[in-house]
Structures are given as C-alpha cells and as structure tokens.
C-alpha cells in the first residue's frame, strides 16, 4: 500500500509562483487605484471651475475635459484587463494543465490552491472595477445640475422687457410680439399688415432646446417615486409621464400638439413593455 503512493506529487515552485503572482497582482491594482484616486482628487475641483467658467451653452469645454479624464480612467481599466488576461487567466490554464487530475488526492489539493488563487485574483479585480466605476461617477458629478429654472425665468422676464420694443420695418408702427417665440416667426404689423420676421435671441431659442430637461427637473420626484416603488407600480409611471408632459407643454405651448403625439407613443410603449 505504501509503495503505491510513495511518490507523492509535490510542486513547491508552483506554490511559490501562486503566492508571488497573487501579491504582484494585488500590488499592481493597488498602485492603479492610488493613481486613479490622485487623478480624481486633483481633477474634480478643476472640473468644477471649468464648468462654472464655460460660457458655451452646451458646456463643451467641460465636456471635452471630462471625456479626457474618463479616457484616462478607462485606460487604467484596459491596462488591468490586459494584465489579467496575460498574467492571470493564461497562467491559470497553464497551471491547471501541469498538476495531477482533480480526482487524485494531490491533484485535489493543488486544484484547490489554484482555485483559491483564481478566486482571490478575480475578486480583487472586481473591487478594482467597482472603483473605476466610482471614479467615473465622481468625475461626471461635476456636470452639476444646470439651473434651467433660473435661465427660463430670466428669459420670461427678458421677453416682457423687449416685447413692446419693436417697430414695423415697413411703416415704423409699434409691433407687440404676441407671445414668446423660440424660432424665427412671421409677425404682422397691425397698422400696415406687412409681414415682418421676428428673430428670437439665442438665449430664448435655448429655452425650447432645454424645455424637456427642465420639465424633467421639475418632475424628478415623481419619476423617483415610480423607480423606488417595490413592486414597481406602473400607475406611478403614468402619473410622472403626464406631469412631465404638462410641464413641457407649459414651457413651449406651441409644441403641445406635437408633444402629445410623442406622449401617446411613450405611454403605449411603456404599457406594452409591461405586458411582455
């Protein structure tokens, strides 16, 4: 009996390799995480400053800086992915092929050790990956919420200031702009009936551009109520959607007819998706 199992399988070099490789992987990811942390810590205040100073209505400077930073964070993720493929996953395949079959006693021991290595390395990677996601959320958080309500109120006030200040290009008679327009619009002179063209300011045009986003800001708590309902309550979504479109229509009444058609489509799709 002793003769049969006299030469027990032993591979100290592999055990040593498992240990050192796991250490190196942990140290490597530690370093990447530290660097990522340094990057976000230094970048977040800068991003806030750029956001505040960016007078482009689409905040394109901020957007480009943000994309550059997310690019670097993703680059770290890619770097870790490459090392994982080349130095962890490939190594695992090789190691599993060198040890005895799992049904033997020694084989079982070695397979268990390899399994422990795999679990430790992969779990460590998941922690890293979660940190990458957190870093991206942190960077994106600098977008801030644009004060759309403030900008809208400002434009309402601006319109009241200018609406009586125009005169007909034909006869010079006063023209009062009947309501807030967001695109070039023909207006008729009440004296000589000539067609003039009213061209709204850039800021007034932006009101229409941002109308849905503002309506969503105003009704965010209703959407949240639906999302947080458990089990999910469909009727809460319908309430949110109706309220959001009411707000949207109140900001740009001229688009209400078109908006309603879009509303119908969204409502139907949401209902159908729930019955699937």
């Amino acid at each position: 009996m002793f003769g049969l199992f006299g030469k027990k399988y032993s591979n100290p070099a592999l055990l040593e390799e498992l240990r050192t490789r796991q250490d190196r992987w942990f140290v490597f990811l530690d370093k990447l995480e530290t660097r990522m942390d340094e990057l976000t810590t230094a970048a977040v205040p800068e991003l806030h400053t750029v956001y505040q100073q960016d007078d482009d209505p689409y905040k394109r400077s901020h957007g480009q800086m943000l994309m550059g930073l997310i690019g670097q964070v993703n680059h770290m993720r890619e770097k870790a992915n490459e090392v994982r493929e080349d130095n962890i996953v490939s190594f695992l395949y090789g190691a599993e092929a060198t040890v005895p079959v799992i049904t033997s006693e020694a084989g079982r021991d070695y397979h268990n050790r390899i399994l422990a290595f795999r679990m430790a390395c992969i779990n460590r990677y998941y922690i890293f990956d979660e940190k990458v996601n957190e870093a991206i959320v942190l960077l994106k958080g600098t977008e801030g919420q644009q004060d759309l309500e403030g900008a809208y109120r400002e434009q309402l006030a601006a319109f009241e200031r200018i609406r009586d200040k125009f005169s007909c290009k034909q006869c010079g008679g006063n023209i009062t702009i009947p309501k807030m327009f967001f695109i070039d619009t023909y207006v008729t002179c009440s004296f000589c009936h000539s067609q003039n063209t009213f061209k709204p300011s850039t800021a007034a045009r932006m009101v229409m551009h941002n109308a849905r986003a503002l309506a969503e800001q105003r009704t965010a708590q209703l959407l949240r109520a639906y999302e947080e309902s458990n089990p999910q309550d469909r009727s809460l979504y319908a309430i949110y959607l109706r309220a959001m479109f009411n707000e949207w229509n109140s900001i740009v009444p001229d688009m209400a007819v078109e908006n309603e058609k879009f509303y119908q489509r969204l409502l139907e799709e949401h209902t159908i998706n729930h019955f699937k």
Partner: peptide, 14 residues
C-alpha cells in the same frame, strides 16, 4: 465654432 449670443431682432423682406 463658438455660439454667439444674438439679441432678438426684427426683419422684413420686401
């Protein structure tokens, strides 16, 4: 290009 902030204005085409 940059977006320039234009004021509202009136125009006519005779």
């Amino acid at each position: 290009g940059d977006i320039t902030n234009e004021e509202a204005q009136m125009d006519i085409r005779d």
